[in-house]
Design a protein around this nucleic acid. Structure first.
Lengths: 334, 334
DNA sequence: CCTCCGGATTGAAAGGTTTCACAAACCTGG
DNA sequence: CCAGGTTTGTGAAACCTTTCAATCCGGAGG
């Protein structure tokens, strides 16, 4: 900027004014300065800018799994919200923790040091103390697609119990009485909630919890789905479920693939319900019945909550919960 | 840092030493300083750090399409390379241009102002002058999965002509003589090259260019594939191709879906070859024959080239070209 | 002709770190 | 006990902006 000022024959302050308050400077000077900037190939230094101004124009989304289309769709919703709100002055950076707590922590540290305007995150563990600390230190954090126990952040999630419920209710209505649950459910969290919903639906139909057959996987990938499919096929016919409810679509697609390999017909031999309704679910071997989450809305809402927190005064943390819906396709309709 | 220095009873320079050269400071003082940092919840200010130090510890990948698993897999390869090279001191931020030149330009501007260490990009237009300007101004740029005409950057790409060639050679070997090419080929670029390879394979088999039937799409999405499928099905039997080579897997999956809807059997009525071999290709309705690109290697190599450029002295720009391979599955085997 | 006003421009401080020359304290061996 | 060397610690400059009070200038009003 000093060089530009020199070249244009004005003071440094004027160059800054051209950049930040162009209306405060006469058209003639502005033209001179702009010419000098072009001439010298001036590029603003964002570090200095941010250091002095104190604020940053960057949001970040720390995704749990960049290779799962669900999260990239959520991210797309955030981008829309940021574009709409920021008047081109706001950008969203994506970080992929790939389920690794260490990577997640590294990104969070970096973002906090960078003094980003706010952090959106689908965390490995929504109750990790680190998230609360960051929020307390002043960087707003919004939890996406998870529900934290505490009240230090806003969050946006989907009613997973209800999602599980409608999935299994549908299967029961189709006449299934033994249903596999395929996923990595733990004591808390999303997958547990989906399973809980499944149990509720069974109960509502007068079927006990023993009608749910757990096939536990390590994670929720296509490969896990394939493995679970093989285990399922290996069960004796007397106990083998006639339907499977998968904790996400990747697992369901893997399961579907195993079925194709083993010549099990879907839905005749096995009905399948997935979760997330990613784009590929509709294009699958047998188009997949799935529980649709409003992906873009989740992202958009999360970004809006974050922006409200950074701009608004007297902010109250909110927990938004969306309601999923069942999309019925061939994989459950005989 | 001033506060920390005060609290620990040392000078500001010492605090900096604890942070940057811990071996230069005695264990006792270091402990004092670290205690003060913890007490005061000190978070380093990256802007000031970068302003003074001049260097940044951030790489960025500007993806063309975040919702295409191909690019997220490429990004994963980059992350691995960054982790390996940076000793935890380097992070990769992802930006999604979503095919929009304006968004791409906005990200590039932001990244340049941020003085990131380097930019990886799959550009909308690999020959856009902006990229050259950025490189000339000093931010290294590596072009990913595209081949720029000029020589201002390193680039990593895949031999698309060869990819098209092996795809269509395979179809010809399977006895197909009229082959649809589904994609948005233009005067230059990737899709054109794949089509060119297809023509070569036909020629090598003694079949003229009229044996390739162009079904042109607007973009390369699943929806485009569906649309192309409907057009293809509408062709009179006399001219309808018996096989289709799709410019990417998303298109192929869309096509496959239309086939299922219209009761066209794959591969009996229509053989299909995709491109990219994304994970979902194997899990599709009929497992998809596809041209596999070494996605993670592309990303890894690109990041390594970028890092070599930033660290090494006397850097020469290189263009790395990988060779794709055909993965044959049920969609072409009758 | 003078005063006053408003818009345009200026100059300097401030923001939080790194770096480097330098000073202080300590240790070694003679 | 001292010269010389090593280890620790210090202080100030520099990095590039933004911001704001202060100055300048031309013109309108009296």
């Amino acid at each position: 900027m000093k060089d530009v000022a020199l070249a244009a024959g004005v003071s440094l302050g004027t160059v800054s004014n051209v950049l930040n308050r162009p209306d405060r400077v006469s058209p003639a000077t502005r033209a001179k300065v702009e010419a000098a900037m072009a001439e010298l190939r001036f590029v603003r230094n964002e570090s200095a800018r941010q250091l002095r101004a104190g604020r940053s124009r960057v949001l970040a989304y720390v995704m749990l799994d960049g290779s799962n289309p669900f999260f990239t769709d959520v991210a797309a919703g955030m981008e829309d919200a940021a574009d709409a709100a920021g008047e081109g002055d706001l950008s969203l950076f994506l970080c992929n923790s790939a389920h690794q707590p260490s990577r997640e922590a590294a990104y969070l540290g970096r973002l906090e040091q960078q003094r980003v305007q706010g952090i959106l995150i689908t965390p490995v563990d929504p109750d990790a103390p680190l998230l609360g600390e960051i929020a307390r230190r002043g960087t707003p954090v919004v939890i996406v697609d998870r529900t934290p126990a505490g009240t230090t952040h806003c969050s946006v999630a989907v009613d997973d119990v209800y999602g599980g419920e409608i999935a299994v209710r549908h299967l029961v209505e189709q006449g299934h009485e033994r249903i596999a649950f395929i996923g990595n459910h733990t004591a808390v969290g999303q997958v547990r909630d989906r399973r809980l919903g499944a149990l509720r639906a069974l109960e509502a139909a007068g079927l006990g919890p023993d009608h749910l057959v757990d096939l536990t996987t390590a994670a929720l990938t296509v490969a896990d789905g394939r493995g679970a499919g093989e285990r399922l096929a290996g069960l004796p016919a007397s106990v083998r479920p006639s339907a499977a409810f998968c904790a996400n679509d990747l697992v369901a697609l893997g399961l579907l693939q195993t079925c194709a390999n083993l010549r099990m017909r879907v839905p005749e031999d096995l009905a399948i319900v997935g979760y997330d309704d990613i784009e590929f679910a509709a294009a699958a071997a047998v188009p997949l019945t799935s529980v649709r989450q409003p992906r873009a809305d989740i992202g958009r809402t999360a970004a809006e909550l974050l922006l409200a927190e950074t701009t608004g005064t007297g902010h109250e943390h909110r927990k938004v919960v969306f309601t999923p819906e069942l999309v019925v396709r061939a994989s459950t309709l005989r």
